[in-house]
Design a protein around this nucleic acid. Structure first.
Lengths: 240, 240
DNA sequence: CGAGGGTTTGAAGTGCATCAAATAGTGTGG
DNA sequence: CCACACTATTTGATGCACTTCAAACCCTCG
């Protein structure tokens, strides 16, 4: 139990929270783990808890009447989600599914609501986080209209890599290629072909889910030409 | 001068603000008006002011090295923008251009920063607004990957219309078709053709910038099929 | 070893972009 | 008030990128 509390306390989002808040959390914080495919909650459901990812990957999405999914984002360790339900009639505004085996900490929304209403520092830090998230979404939209499929993949790989690295970098795709594809808004077939095209253009090497990049700069030159922010895309790297 | 203050005070965003805040604003609030094409500020510039639109339309955008624009959003009366600069190193995170003659109220960012740091109600209301804005962005991304060009136009028209209206509705496009096109992420040529296709499919009537819709339901049926939220898209209508 | 899902490859189709040119609309100065 | 210049919009023709449908391959796991 105290382990959970440690994890929570060490998360930068809760840096400025009150002792009362942590005490509240402790009473009902719960850690669970789930396999691929588990649905945590669905869009529209009444929301009582929000979540912190200890490990693994979680997909947030909505779906249309005919079952097509629109992927909102895919998050991992350290990320908090569903916290905005307190501003949305206490309904989850999207569905959440485990896509790689995960340990998830569930926390009471009410406690967050109380704290945020009394602790201005927390409200400010959430505002700042959401502003950053907004920027990332705007960039996402930009990418969809300005970049080609191979460029979007290149950009994705760059964000996955340590951008300060020099020389050769080795990357593991964190989840299925199918999922990367839909995360990037393309079909699996397109992803496969586009990845090969990226290989031709930039000399990256592909072995299954492992990708070796000889030169980040060469990859960036090809991928970031059609983007309004230049490599390294500081602060936009991934979703904290 | 007091007129400006009235406008500011009547904006729902500032509902809970302190007298000190309004006093601060009063000292340096300025109203200006501008013609089409005027640039208010550019991406990256040092930010000292944020803005409230009294009338007209403003385009927020970023551009790539080769000059291509990515449109972030287009706002009108009542909307506040560039306020997030206080969370972004006091730099404007995008550029802003007048696209229809506009009256703009400029306000000091510092005053907002002070108020938001001392007035939790304001912070909460901004959080709530930004959450809503996030939802809208997510929907935007969804539309780009799931809807066809004619459907996106249909959806745009529906959001422009009074969604509770019964029977025939008449709409004026608020700005150039070229701009609508880029707002929707398509070329002007594509917009023109897609609008005609929408006419065939849904029986709308087009006279220049005026569009008549016989049945909102018929339009919604065609446009919203590929979307995860159903018509009427409450709360997502436009950008308050 | 065999079943089933993930991934790749091939072939064909579709929607949007692009290039080019005609037309409509708007504001200007004469 | 007209003619001109300039821009917005439409139309046509063509090309390309991504999708779709189909089938093979591959990998993992029971």
């Amino acid at each position: 139990m105290s382990e959970i509390l440690e994890i929570i306390k060490s998360n930068p989002h809760f840096k400025n929270c009150s002792a009362a808040f942590f005490a509240n959390l402790r009473t009902s914080a719960a850690i669970t783990h789930h396999d691929k495919g588990h649905i945590l909650f669905v869009n529209g459901e009444a929301a009582e808890r929000f979540y912190l990812i200890k490990s693994g990957w979680v997909k947030l999405f909505r779906e249309t009447l005919d079952g097509t999914q629109a992927i909102i984002d895919i998050f991992t360790t350290g990320h908090i989600f569903a916290e905005t339900a307190i501003f949305e009639d206490n309904k989850y505004p999207y569905s959440a599914e485990i896509v790689e085996p995960a340990e998830i900490i569930a926390l009471p929304l009410q406690a967050l609501k109380n704290e945020i209403e009394s602790n201005n520092k927390l409200a400010l830090s959430m505002l700042s986080t959401m502003t950053g998230y907004g920027r990332r979404q705007e960039q996402e939209i930009e990418h969809m209209s300005l970049q080609s499929a191979p460029q979007r993949i290149g950009c994705f790989l760059l964000r996955l890599a340590d951008q300060n690295a020099r020389g050769e970098v080795k990357i593991q795709l964190p989840y299925d290629k199918m999922l990367v594809a839909s995360r990037l808004g393309m079909q699996p077939e397109t992803f496969s072909r586009a990845l090969n095209k990226l290989k031709e253009k930039t000399g990256i090497k592909i072995h299954g889910a492992t990708i070796e990049i000889d030169s980040l700069n060469q990859l960036a030159e090809y991928s970031c030409g059609a983007c309004s922010s230049e490599f390294p895309c500081k602060d936009l790297r991934s979703c904290k």
